[in-house]
Nucleic acid binder design. Structure first.
Lengths: 215, 215
DNA sequence: TTCGACCATAGAACGCCGTTCGAGGTTGAC
DNA sequence: GTCAACCTCGAACGGCGTTCTATGGTCGAA
């Protein structure tokens, strides 16, 4: 079981979601596909268990982070840790928190985030929404990040700048009066860093939260 | 072409992403699969064009909304319109904004949102991040919504309350000292409304944005 | 030592998928 | 009548998730 999950995570790391097939996994393990079905009842469960396996590492990292006197700063640090983990493993964003029954580490991480909100002056409902909003920002940011890697980049045939530049070029060629906003931000887009973009979104949410908590 | 996209959207509406296959689409159109490949070079393009087709309706609705004197309120209204559209068609969240070359309506919608930020006192970079953050909240919220419909609900064999209640039950059975947060919010979860959750996340982001714009 | 219960393995087979391909029809300009 | 350009079709290919059946291996009971 442990070996199956480790191999599954390795396959996902090497070539992303589509690369994880029962046949490839069986080949890597030197067994037949039927054997994998002995441990796991279908592909969804395999993905959930592999995801939880990987999230275990994130959870361990998060649990090492000591509490400061600012819960919102702690929330931010945890969100950043999670984001960085998903950047390393973009496939995580697609499956994270999909099934908390099978993903007990994800649930623990959720609890870990939520506990910080207990230190804020909020209603239970506000706490519930706040944690969900933060997770949404992390997963949403990282998901977008995974999408924009269309194989050429992964193969190394094209640099990231060239890829973004091509988009920027077509955007620049749009009519300036019809697309004033796109024209204004096209340079930001061309040189943008995903992490900055994530942090900006996160900080907007956290600023709103701080306001709500009156802290 | 038009007929292909209309039929594709109809299939997606009826049974979600997995239901859109070239064979099913060909059958519905009364043609062969090869014919569809004449109009569209592969499935990704089909999905992008179908998505843009559907987003066209959202764009039309958004363009009808008149500007108020509060750009952030206008941003909020547009985001809500987009969210409601994705609630009606959950499959949209997976493909929206994936390729702005093929999704010209999506690009126009992006411009429409961005133009509101031109009325705010922000740097171009802040505008860029703000729009992206808002889209992230919308798509992220709606995506989560699509995930949590695991067929039983779609088939009508189980009510939504029952479904959420089952999750709530397992959460409640967790150790209370180990999971104080989960215990506190389990009731919120059991009765939660996705739209409220989305609005809460959106309003956190918009509150942060308002702070940033000094408005 | 033999036997059966049970855990575990293996891989052929099924049906569905995206995609390719070559063989056609239809149309209108010359 | 000819010839391109446009469009249609469905068999065929390889890969996927999943199922099923047959077979090893292990180990306590007899």
């Amino acid at each position: 079981m442990e070996a199956v999950l480790t191999a599954a995570v390795a396959l996902l790391d090497e070539a992303g979601g589509p690369a994880l097939t029962f046949r490839a996994l069986a080949a890597r393990l030197g067994t037949g596909v039927g054997t994998i079905y002995w441990y796991v009842s279908n592909k969804d469960e395999l993905l959930d268990r592999a995801t939880d396996h990987a999230i275990g590492g994130v959870l361990a990292a998060v649990e090492k982070q000591p509490d400061s006197d600012d819960p919102i700063a702690d929330l931010r640090a945890m969100a950043v840790t999670l984001f960085d983990a998903i950047v390393d493993r973009p496939w995580l964003s697609a499956y994270f928190m999909r099934n908390t029954d099978l993903q007990s580490n994800s649930l623990r991480l959720y609890e870990k985030l939520g506990r910080q909100t207990l230190r804020l002056d909020l209603t239970p409902r506000q706490r519930f929404h706040a944690v969900w909003a933060i997770i949404g920002v992390v997963v949403g940011s990282a998901a977008d990040l995974g999408v924009e890697i269309p194989q050429e980049l992964l193969d190394g045939h094209m640099g990231r700048d060239e890829y973004l530049g091509r988009f920027a070029e077509t955007w620049r060629s749009l009519d300036a009066t019809e697309f004033p906003y796109v024209h204004q931000i096209v340079d930001e887009f061309a040189g943008h860093d995903d992490r900055d973009q994530f942090l900006a979104a996160l900080d907007l949410t956290l600023a709103g939260l701080r306001l709500q908590a009156g802290a």
